[in-house]
């Protein structure tokens, strides 16, 4: 008889349909993922392919000439470098201390909740509104007072430049560093702190000797994230000090220190913005070259952060 030899656990019509549906759905969702991966790869290949003719070591170390139609990218690159350094100098100490306050000192009350909401809203403020804020607060309100205080006159006066742009970018990245540092601090087990307190250490001593050393590398990933964001931002520096062209020296010490804190500066993101849609008869290669260098810069910085995180997970001990 046929029925006797039939496996009683064999999937019926209903189960087979369900399995088919599952496989089907799985492919659809995999397709969604590919919808993100494939365009990204295609776009990157396209940009680097079109940029290839201009990419060379000289392209990175020469100054742009003839409105960026010829020459390289040195001036915007070094400008971006100083912008990143400047904003890091401000945002790292303030952000890390703020996170320490929220994680180690503040009690769970209305104040901590208000700070939390402030961090969220600050993270959500559009970049262009940060630019308006930088214009209103740093360029129009802070700089004149600063000049008057130092007694600077005429040509010596500080204008919108590296200082104001760095401060604006710093305010913008404050929530990023607070969030990532809080995460790093939260990863230190509470028992570590309790053991230290039981030995008689104060809160501050515990933070300094136990909490910070154990979360330092986690914080570092957050700082790298800020570096990559600061290097790519355009809207906040549009009105607060970035300029399209500034003549800088081709040789010597001046080449490495071209911009004073009170002088307008060039930056990669600003350069890409202008050459991609505001200069007529800009050679295609130069546009793609600039975009390719900026993308490569961001990807390299981010792979540092990813590598650091993988390494950290590998040696996690608790």
């Amino acid at each position: 008889m046929e029925t006797a030899s039939k496996n009683p656990f064999a999937p019926g019509e209903f189960e087979r349909k369900k399995d088919q549906a599952l496989a089907h759905r799985k492919w659809v969702m995999f397709g969604f993922c590919m919808l993100l991966v494939l365009p990204l790869i295609a776009i990157l290949v396209d940009i680097f392919w079109k940029a290839a003719p201009v990419l060379s070591f000289d392209y990175l170390t020469e100054n742009p000439t003839n409105k960026g139609k010829e020459g390289g990218l040195w001036a915007p690159l070094i400008g971006t470098f100083y912008l990143v350094i400047g904003s890091l100098l401000v945002v790292t100490p303030v952000g890390i201390l703020a996170a320490i306050y929220m994680n180690e000192y503040a009690k769970d009350g209305w104040l901590n909740r208000t700070i939390g909401i402030a961090v969220t809203s600050l993270a959500g403020v559009p970049s262009i509104v940060h630019g308006l804020f930088g214009l209103g607060a740093f360029v129009l309100a802070m700089l004149p007072g600063f000049n008057a205080m130092l007694g600077l006159e005429g040509d010596e006066k500080w204008e919108a430049g590296l200082l104001t742009a760095s401060l604006t970018v710093a305010v913008m990245n404050l929530p990023v560093i607070i969030t990532s540092t809080r995460e790093a601090l939260g990863a230190v087990p509470q028992s570590f702190r309790e053991a230290c307190w039981n030995l008689g250490a104060t809160r501050f001593q515990t933070i300094r000797t136990i909490v910070l050393p154990n979360s330092l590398s986690g914080m570092l990933t957050g700082i790298i994230l800020v570096v990559s964001r600061a290097a790519g931002e355009t809207a906040p520096i549009l009105f607060t000090g970035a300029t399209f062209f500034k003549f800088i020296a081709d040789e010597g010490v001046e080449k490495w220190f071209p911009y004073g804190p009170g002088e307008p500066f060039m930056a990669m993101s600003m350069h890409l913005n202008i050459i991609s849609n505001q200069i007529s008869q800009m050679p295609e290669n130069m546009k793609f070259g600039c975009a390719a260098v900026l993308i490569a810069l961001i990807l390299i910085i981010n792979s540092f952060s990813i590598a650091l995180r993988v390494w950290l997970r590998g040696r996690k001990r608790w």
Binding site: P93, G95, A98, I100, S121, L132, G136, L140, F204, Q205
Partner: peptide, 29 residues
């Protein structure tokens, strides 16, 4: 230790200060 704790407290308020100054300066302009 004491000055540092005060400084940490001030930095803790930095995001509130930040969002408030953004509000003030945009409204001022």
């Amino acid at each position: 230790e004491k000055p540092m704790e005060l400084f940490i407290r001030i930095c803790g308020w930095s995001s509130i200060i930040g969002i408030a100054t953004i509000f003030v300066f945009i409204f001022k302009e």
